[in-house]
């Protein structure tokens, strides 16, 4: 690949959606949740606590613009105007820089609430693997947090780490999970998920003759191990749900759930939306509280 632009193997698809079954005109409260993460940003619009529209895109260079763009993207297919929105909550890593937010709520609270909405009230343990952090959360039947921890000290075991890795091996991020299972024998996990070490370890494994798929397997398995140890710290209680982009990586999820002996719940929603959906729901609850 000497000429031309190197393809971007980390890139996932941006998307927006509108609910064809409901309108906003009749709604009492239209609430907006904006989750500005380190890698992706989402805007979820709810009408009286129902999913109405969303936009999901990559986070740009600065948080205020990422928030504005995600909202514009969510509104794109609707006839809704921004000024009809009754309440907006910002969450995520960039939450203090969401210009239209009436208030901010931590992503811990929003992911628990969002998981409760997407997967139902039976969810007790929520794992969110974001671009730059891992959140392990326990919650009650209302989606209220009872125990949490967040590891954001380094990119090890996070979405960003996976992106760097996919790029290094020239494997599109969406194929990493599947290809990691195309191995005859599961190789031992790489010894560290630290992005810097894992990179050099991967290179030396390739040189030793391991296939790309085997190196992917070794890395997915190290990530699963790391995530598992954090989950154990808060105690794992069924049912279990995964939010965030990593939920889509079956290479990590498959190995993790095998260790846990628990199948994660399934949802038809895009798992990256959980934080923004939780934020929109809190907005709805707060509107209710305020207006009786």
């Amino acid at each position: 690949m000497l000429e031309g632009k190197k393809p971007e193997f980390w890139r996932w698809t941006e998307s927006n959606w509108i609910n064809p079954d409901i309108g906003w005109e009749e709604a009492r409260f239209i609430t907006l949740g904006i989750d500005v993460g380190s890698v992706s940003s989402q805007a979820v619009i709810m009408t009286d606590g129902n999913m109405y529209a969303y936009g999901n895109m990559r986070t740009g260079a600065d948080s205020p613009n990422s928030a504005r763009n995600a909202l514009k993207f969510a509104l794109e297919k609707t006839t809704l105007n921004e000024d009809k929105i009754s309440y907006c909550i910002g969450t995520g890593y960039g939450r203090v820089n969401v210009p239209m937010a009436d208030r901010t709520v931590t992503e811990i609270a929003c992911h628990a609430r969002g998981a409760n909405f997407f997967y139902g009230s039976k969810v007790r343990t929520v794992l969110d693997v974001g671009g730059q952090d891992i959140k392990a959360i326990r919650c009650d039947e209302k989606g209220k947090v009872t125990n949490f921890l967040m590891n954001d000290k380094c990119a090890a075991g996070t979405g960003r780490g996976m992106e760097v890795f996919a790029d290094l091996l020239s494997v599109p991020i969406g194929e990493v999970g599947e290809r990691s299972y195309l191995v005859e024998k599961e190789p031992p996990a790489v010894s560290s998920t630290c992005v810097v070490y894992a990179k050099s370890e991967a290179t030396s494994l390739l040189r030793k003759g391991l296939s790309t798929n085997e190196v992917l397997a070794a890395y997915c398995s190290a990530m699963a191990e790391r995530i598992y140890s954090l989950l154990k710290r808060i105690g794992i209680e069924p049912e279990f749900a995964i939010t965030g982009g990593m939920a889509k990586n079956i290479g990590v999820v498959g190995r993790l759930t095998k260790k846990m002996g628990l199948e994660p719940l399934k949802t038809s929603w895009d798992t990256q939306l959980a934080g923004a959906a939780g934020a929109a729901l809190f907005g709805f609850a707060l509107c209710h509280k305020r207006n009786g």
Binding site: L149, N151, K153, R233
Partner: peptide
């Protein structure tokens, strides 16, 4: 609520 603040890295677990 048990709020765990801290991190785990190669050297150990540091949570309050």
């Amino acid at each position: 609520m048990l709020a765990n603040y801290g991190y785990s890295d190669g050297s150990g677990n540091y949570f309050i």
